[in-house]
Amino acid sequence: MKNKRFLILLLPLLAACSEFIEPSIGSREIGLLAPANRLETNSYQQTFWWNPMADALYYRLQVVSPRFDSVSKVLLDTLINKDKFVYTLDPGKYEWRVRGENGSSASAYAQRSLVIYPSSLSDQELQLSLPSNGLSVSKPQVRYEWLKLFGATTYRLQVDRNNFLDEKSMDLNITTENLVFLQTLSAEGNYQFRVRAENATQNSKWSTIRTLTYDATGPERPVLSTPLNRQLVSRPVRLVWNKVADADKYELWVYKSDGDTPYNSSYPKILTATELSFDAGDPGEVVAWRVRAFDKAGNVGAYSELRTFTIQ
């Protein structure tokens, strides 16, 4: 009888522990989708693609030349959390493989081979690295990066605010032998950029057009809604403020009655919502609070007014 009671008490503990036990993926293998095994192609840019694996937190992709049993060059050995990775290679013979990994185990590798033949530069598309598409920045300095493209001697970078409709009035239209270029943007706004590879006789296809936003202006000051200043309220207290047009997140401060000492170690709180339920405090206690907004570029706006309320 005692053993049965002990088991009944132990079962909830075992169930709780099982939620924290990470499943082993050591006996599994990734299902590769592309490129096809033993593919022979003249396309330098390849999309490595595989089936997602349950319980894998990320994937290790390795690409070598010419073979894993006779490596002369390691092109990639990277961890990613998606099931697809795009990379530009030179002509040559390659082997590539992928495995799933989590915090305590790794699956078996799945492996394929690939041959890339030299081709016309005009058949190729250049691959951008930085900045990421849609990036917002608060500083005017921008670093552009792209991958080397076989057969290129120079690279043309174009930056514009009018979708490249007039090459004579673009913000930037330069050539460089490097794979990196630093630019100081002239004004706040939305920009488009693209890069292509060039040599004496040919140009590659333009890269995919990416956008970035230069925003050095902080968001507007939030306006507090409820509770009213110095209002007597019951717990829980809904702290509500208006939505700021260009805000990406909000920083909420709750203070002791002096309006300066954080109420506890959980403040300030970073929120995307425009309200919070405050359920603390003793009857008669005075609590102060205020909010400020941050935009996507990281600019911070002015604080709202400082309000107080009293717990009844």
Rank of each mutant, 00 (worst) to 15 (best):
E22M: 05
K82F: 00
Y144M: 14
Q158S: 10
N42F: 10
T208H: 05
Y155V: 12
L157A: 06
Y155F: 11
A106I: 06
W96L: 08
V240D: 06
D279S: 13
E177S: 14
Y214V: 12
Q141L: 14
L252P: 00
T201G: 03
I30V: 15
N162R: 10
A245E: 11
D90G: 01
S129C: 09
K148C: 00
V71C: 04
S72H: 11
S105N: 00
G92R: 07
A108L: 10
V237P: 02
G134Q: 04
Q62W: 01
P66H: 10
R161I: 10
S204R: 04
A288Y: 07
Y303R: 08
P140G: 10
P52I: 02
S186V: 15
L89A: 09
S18E: 09
A54S: 11
G92V: 03
E305C: 06
N163I: 13
F20N: 05
W206A: 02
A245F: 10
I25D: 00
A34M: 06
D215V: 12
L252C: 01
D248Y: 14
P227R: 05
W96C: 06
R156K: 13
G218S: 14
F48M: 02
Y155W: 07
G31H: 07
Q231S: 12
I209P: 03
V287M: 05
V233A: 12
S27C: 04
L114T: 04
N42A: 15
P268I: 08
